[in-house]
Design a protein around this nucleic acid. Structure first.
Lengths: 208, 208, 208, 208
DNA sequence: AATGAATGAGAGTTCATTCAT
DNA sequence: AATGAATGAACTCTCATTCAT
């Protein structure tokens, strides 16, 4: 391997370590706590150095968000490639999303941030990473429809969006209210999720 | 009426005018644009005066959020008191929520803010305003169940939460992505909502 | 005097003291050395306080520039009101300008700054303060022309601008090169000025 | 040619390419836009390399300023070598200066920068480049004087400086205020220049 | 009760210069 | 000779909160 690629690798690794530092900061204090100074300190770099790797703070957030989306996509792909029935796959997607939220709360937050904030502008790359997820889900719904297990008058694109919206809403509820719901009603997050899945299944199942 | 209660009333009215000022500011520039100075100026008060009526900026937001929740509750109550079938009422609740978002975007945003941000702590009063909505929906679901139009193995509380979560998610999707969805896929918000309602109805309907 | 006007006066005086601090800073280190932090420190105020009195750093500069221009105008007015001959007045204007540069180098620099930098935008107030000077000079040239001591084919506005340009150029030369000129050629600034005045007089005098 | 001089030549050429890069940057964005990084990038060199050829950023500016002065000098020399009358030559010098400003705005700015900023220190080399211009003008004035077309009591050196100052002032006025003067008074730059030349000619002409 | 001037930490960003490689 | 990553001080500006009056 030549000098050039080694340097490239070093540069990439430094970039990565900045991203990691940013993750540490946000994992500790929430998305809102991200500041360039804090990242620099965490990464043991000077403030200005950060700007050698990212054009501004927003680019750090955007980069991490794309990473998060791709990771979510990757989790979904495993579901797609499994040999479950098409309907089960749809349900598993929802469950994977929940797992993703549990195992990687920061990434989940990043995905949600851009999902929930219409003042943030998404770059082409960001939009593409989002589209990949949408397309995957669309494919799965199409598959289910062709397998004849889906209510016929469901439009694929339309339902893809609905599924995404509903799931996001349920997970958000669990995330923000999960604790208090458990304390006051003894309802566990997974219970909520199961109910959602049941409604979903009934809602889209072919009527006999 | 004694002096005390007159003073109380004056104080209450001043408090109200501050809240109104805050609404004006946020309606113009979004939740993010709220600053204590801006509120003071809009209310024609001194900055310090704001702090005589609210312990801090967050309390203003919290108070308005309660107001918003109560207004949403009031809209829901009209549905409850209508003479539709129990199942229709549930669907109308969702639609009312969409109307609320359209007619009062600021209040909708306020409701969403606390719904979506688990770093904000809710006071007892806030929780109660939230509970009122939950209870109303629970009552309606119970009604539907007793009318025999609901799938029997649905737990009321559980479904209440799910309904809230799903609806919130769909509306959030419409709010943030509505435009781009229309541009790229020619799917209108109401179409999305209708699909959701159809899935919902099928999902909770009694199976024959 | 009521409370209101006292407060107003206090506010005005604080504003004034900030301007004074800015003058101190720039007198020490040149126009370029002006920084909001430095001004705050000099004025014994917090950084943020400066922004209560000036919307940004540029406003400080602009305000001082207007002050400078008005002071120069005031010096010119004394010449205008004297009972010299019209031609002498024109020459005295040049000399007053030189005195202004000597006695108030900072103000002279401020006048020059906006004179020499076409990236800076001038507000209406600034432009007016500039116009006042131009008008005064125009009046004096008009007077000289009507007195018959001026070359007839001189256009008043045109000559006003030329006079201003030439004078500025000479003073700038004196300011920047004055020392070195004296060291290397033993020519004193006033000598330079006198030569300029002589050329000027000959240049505009009515030919016999 | 030995190794040493080849290396020397290479070094010189590299230095030249850096200067050229700096010119490109400043031509695009003005004197103010010059940054060492930008120059390095434009020159396709590493930042640090710039410092092998120039001790600091200022030296780049200074070197270019000398270049600019020499180019102006060269333009003046053409006037000197023409067969106009001595008085015409003096006027042509002014016009050449205006042309220089029009055709090479960057170089004009560089000449002005050091002309207008007494915080910048000039090296010996810089002073010499300045002196060459002064000497040329002095020669021409001397010539005019000896030809008997010049007012006798004009001191050559003294007038040289005055001429330079006045011209600089007029051009600066045209540069900074030219547009607004045209918009508000419909006076064209060349008109201003002509007026100046007329005053100048009258001012220095031998009186009959 | 009301004022509003003052605070000052904190934000994002830039850039001339250095130095280990 | 050349690199270019790293520095870190400097910059302007914001804003929730306090407190003397």
């Amino acid at each position: 391997m030549g000098t050039k690629s080694r340097k490239q690798a070093e540069k990439e690794s430094r970039r990565e370590s900045i991203l990691q530092a940013a993750e540490v900061i946000m994992t500790k204090g929430g998305l809102h706590s991200l500041s360039v100074d804090a990242v620099a300190q965490q990464a043991q770099l000077a403030t200005g150095t950060i700007y050698l790797y990212f054009k501004n703070k927003e680019e750090i957030l955007a980069t991490l968000t794309i990473k998060a989306r791709l990771q979510l996509l990757s989790a979904f792909e495993k579901v797609e490639q499994s040999d479950s029935t098409p309907l089960d796959k749809i349900k598993q997607i929802v469950q994977k999303n929940y797992l993703f939220y549990q195992e990687n709360p920061l990434y989940y937050d990043l995905v949600s941030l851009y999902e929930a904030n219409n003042t943030l502008v998404e770059s082409d790359e960001m939009y593409k990473s989002s589209e990949k997820i949408t397309h995957l889900v669309s494919r799965m719904i199409d598959e289910a429809k062709r397998a004849g297990t889906l209510n016929e008058n469901i439009d694929i694109q339309n339902f893809t969006l609905c599924l995404w919206g509903m799931t996001t809403g349920i997970l958000q509820l669990i995330k923000v209210r999960g604790n208090i719901i458990y304390e006051k009603m003894q309802i566990e997050p997974t219970h909520l999720l199961d109910t959602f899945l049941e409604i979903l299944e009934n809602g889209i199942n072919k009527k006999l």
